[in-house]
Design a protein around this nucleic acid. Sequence first.
DNA 1: TGCAAGTAGTCAATAGACTTGACTATCATG
DNA 2: CATGATAGTCAAGTCTATTGACTACTTGCA
Lengths: 162, 162
Amino acid sequence: MTPSNSERPPEHELREPDEPQQPPLSVLLRNARRAVADHVRLALDEAGFADLPPNGPFVLSALAFGQAPHSEVISRLGVSKQAAGQLVETLVGRGYLERFPDPADGRRFTLALTVRGERAGTVVRSAAAQLEAAVEDIAGADGLRTAKQVLEAVIEMGAMDE
Amino acid sequence: MTPSNSERPPEHELREPDEPQQPPLSVLLRNARRAVADHVRLALDEAGFADLPPNGPFVLSALAFGQAPHSEVISRLGVSKQAAGQLVETLVGRGYLERFPDPADGRRFTLALTVRGERAGTVVRSAAAQLEAAVEDIAGADGLRTAKQVLEAVIEMGAMDE
DNA sequence: TGCAAGTAGTCAATAGACTTGACTATCATG
DNA sequence: CATGATAGTCAAGTCTATTGACTACTTGCA
């Protein structure tokens, strides 16, 4: 027996919810985020893009059909520039992205999707859009818009803590 | 110059949004989730619980003021039982949790919060509640309720892909 | 011009969390 | 009491992110 237990047994009872109350926002957000990510991941796997790393969909979406400076992708990702650099390197290595030097600034690079990257991006966007459409069918256009406004408010509140 | 660049420059322009359209749900969820997590993390750091791992708040909330079987915490976390076991081990080691053997079943363990764990749990819950209340001030009670319903719909849709 | 300071990005090492595969101990069923 | 299932751990490896230090380039100012 490896875990070190003390001898005293616990006292309280497991609480069971009397009413079907709504869970806290934090839990809902966590689970909803996971659900969307899983849905997108499933679509990617089926389409032959299983080697796209977890943050890949985010980069692909940020690039959409166009291009963007490396630095912008970094700042949108919300991770350290080193982590973003590694991710970009991986995506380049796996054929999703191309890197172009900025002609005006020798330090900078521009990122653009390859054909494969665009295809994967299409899968990401359509999977997300499909789920969003299904939610809209249930919640209605107004409900979805309201929900998005609330999410934007949450994001804004969070940004206020620095 | 380490990155391998090709010589051809990119063709398209960076698109800029003409209208302040709402971002896709997937992006909003990602960012909102991060905002909440950051907010909670900040509160924990300030309260002296900086050593709580990222998934710690979730476990603490799952335990609330009571106790729960290890297996239930595992299934709710949505990760492998090994990962959950590591997390629990860490939380025990850092004084947030205690493990008690189940008197009826020698294989099972019950988890309960220590005093420190309850304090940290209080911080987590109050930080989350504070943010939720602030959002409710902006969006209104109806808006928040609607948003939660939408999130639950998203979670349910995701569960349908297996 | 030329130097100082700031910015873009990389390198290297590491930490942290999760995964798979194999295993032990206990319980339930016949 | 033997077989199979379940709870949980051990061990090893992977993957992602972090920190700290560094190079290369640009900008601004004298």
